[in-house]
Amino acid sequence: MDLEINIKTELPGFSLDVNWRMQRELVVLFGHSGAGKSMTLRTIAGIAPQGDGHIRLNGRLLYSKDMKINLPPQQRSVGYVFQDLALFPHMTVEKNILFGTRGIDSREARKKAMDMMELFCLAEYRGRYPHEISGGQKQRVALARALMRNPEVLLLDEPFSSLDDQLRLEMRRCLVNVVKREFHIPAILVTHNVLEVFSLADRVMVYSRGRIVQCDTPQAVFNNPVNEEVMSLVSLKKLYPDYLFT
């Protein structure tokens, strides 16, 4: 597994200029809001302007300005969990999960969906609509739906941002158990939560104003932040509750 992204995109008031590659690992894109993290994910998925450069996934060019290649999102083989989850509100949990299986034999798809629902503890909610289940269950539906098509890379755009601390912890465990251990799938997680960086990341890329300012293991970033901005992002105050510092 190998994902290589080398993109320069100019937008009004913002530019993204990133060049990095990843292998079978969980990479966290970390930084302040508006630093270009989500934009990077959308660019990989083909749902944002692509600009100059190229994106290569497992040797296959998803995008290349020079070679005039720009695969549509349908052909990129990426699983995407959106920040607002983007579940289909008019479809049941089961139909949401089955949505991406067109082209697969329907009996086989149903069996796979059932296995997936059991894995994510969703089987008893299969007939319910998104507005009839809890926030944590919605997260799991979004994750299961994205994994149903066996994507080559999983893109997670701040999927836990709307959850309370307990549910965040639960979802982090779910992500580690299912995505890393069960599926062995490379994943890119966008977050500005430092706890998620330290509990999930194999490698962290710190974004600032559309550029990567530091790329290393979480421990290395924590021990040797390259500048004051990174230091403030990973400071102990972000890791521990305020009362420890008073």
Binding site: P73, Y80, F82, A86, F88, F99, R145, A146, M148, R149
Partner: peptide, 21 residues
């Protein structure tokens, strides 16, 4: 929501299917 339509696209749905479904 555009992200719901984009979700359908990343799940392999053609523009036609995204519109109708």
């Amino acid at each position: 929501d555009v992200s719901v339509e984009n979700a359908a696209r990343t799940l392999g749905a053609s523009e036609w299917r995204t519109f109708w479904s």
